[in-house]
Amino acid sequence: MTAHEIAGMIFITIGILFIIIGLFGLYRYKNFYTRASVSSLIDSAGFLFISVGIVLYKGLSTFSLKMLFLILLTLLLNPLASHFTVRGAYLSGHRPRKEH
């Protein structure tokens, strides 16, 4: 296990921790908006850490060049998708019940 493989594994485990936190938020909260705001953690932080961990694990090569392009594209698209979801929910009149 060389140095950059260990660093990659550490990044991947941090990414999985972020995904677990996002999933915990997905089931913890009752109304849709807090649920969506917590679970966008999976789209951005979880994805970023795991893919950077994979790039570190494989070292710099054409493989990681394609991976970096995928990371940039997905970091642009995923938050946009969750924004569209929440915007559509709000504009179509989905109001959360008042939590006591």
């Binding site: 995904i19 997905l26 649920r35 969506a36 999976i42 789209d43 979880g46 995923n78 969750s82 929910a89």
Partner: peptide
């Protein structure tokens, strides 16, 4: 609601890419 379903589907596709 249907919006929770879209949220779950969005997260599922993000994790499946990983």
């Amino acid at each position: 609601t249907i919006w929770d379903r879209i949220l779950g589907f969005n997260l599922f596709s993000a994790i499946f890419i990983l």
